[in-house]
């Protein structure tokens, strides 16, 4: 069998996986769809943040009566804050806002160019003022009520042997969050489908940044204590 598929099948056979829903842009014209999806999720799952995820890792079980679900919003789009956040709060659910820190720091004038350069898809003409990224004020508003997490600094793919690039995207992003939120973030999502244990260089950066959770295509890893 395909090695990756065999590993996933074996993992599924040994323990129930973590349920996740991944979103990227959340434009207003789909608000009704998101509302119904979140209503369905709220019936079945408990609001789940990093403390609940840590408890799941410690015990193998979700702390509440209902199982947990990771509702992840990737890239740090403004429409996540404007459209999706109110729906999460209407249904009492917790969102995981994985933002590229450099996108939040980017001037409004440069955001469209930044998006084009860094594989960030935009909804055409969505915002007349040209601001497509969540601001640091908005991320600070989410912080605590929801999960704010790092999705690198620039949303760029870095070669596995590019030490400088990796330092900036993994550690530099954490520096950005620390400076703007007043504390480091606990979770990181990488672009390379990379997992802990594959590259000593990546592992060392993750340790320096002191992330607790690493999200990749098929896994959530709780990382070794730095």
């Amino acid at each position: 069998m395909n090695v990756q598929l065999a590993q996933i099948a074996a993992a599924f056979a040994s323990a129930a996986p973590i349920n996740a829903i991944n979103y990227h842009n959340t434009p207003a014209h789909r608000a009704g769809e998101y509302d119904r999806q979140l209503a369905a999720l709220a019936e079945r799952f408990a609001p789940t943040g990093e403390d609940e995820l840590a408890a799941f890792f410690r015990t193998g079980r979700w702390p509440g009566r209902k199982p947990g679900v990771i509702i992840a919003l990737y890239n740090g789009y403004r429409n996540n804050y404007d459209v999706f956040r109110p729906l999460l709060e209407k249904h009492g659910l917790t969102g995981w806002f994985f933002a590229a820190s450099g996108y939040a720091s980017c001037s409004i004038r440069d955001q469209i160019a930044f998006s084009r350069q860094n594989t960030l898809k935009l909804i055409p003409d969505e915002y007349a003022d040209g601001r497509y990224a969540m601001s640091w004020d908005e991320l600070r508003d989410l912080d605590g009520r929801h999960v704010v997490a790092s999705h690198t600094r620039n949303h760029v793919r870095i070669a596995i042997d590019d030490a400088v690039g990796m330092e900036g995207e993994i550690v530099g992003s954490q520096d950005d969050f620390s400076a703007n939120l007043g504390h480091p973030v606990r979770s990181f999502a990488w672009l390379l489908s990379g997992t802990h244990g594959q590259s000593p260089l990546t592992d060392a950066c993750l340790a320096r940044a002191r992330y607790e959770f690493l999200f990749s295509d098929f896994k959530i890893q709780r990382l070794p204590e730095a």
Partner: peptide, 21 residues
Amino acid sequence: AEVGVPMFLVAEDRRASTPPA
């Protein structure tokens, strides 16, 4: 780019010597 995509993610604890229950 605009829809919710459900996924099952394997939980891997790099701290624990034994897997969770």
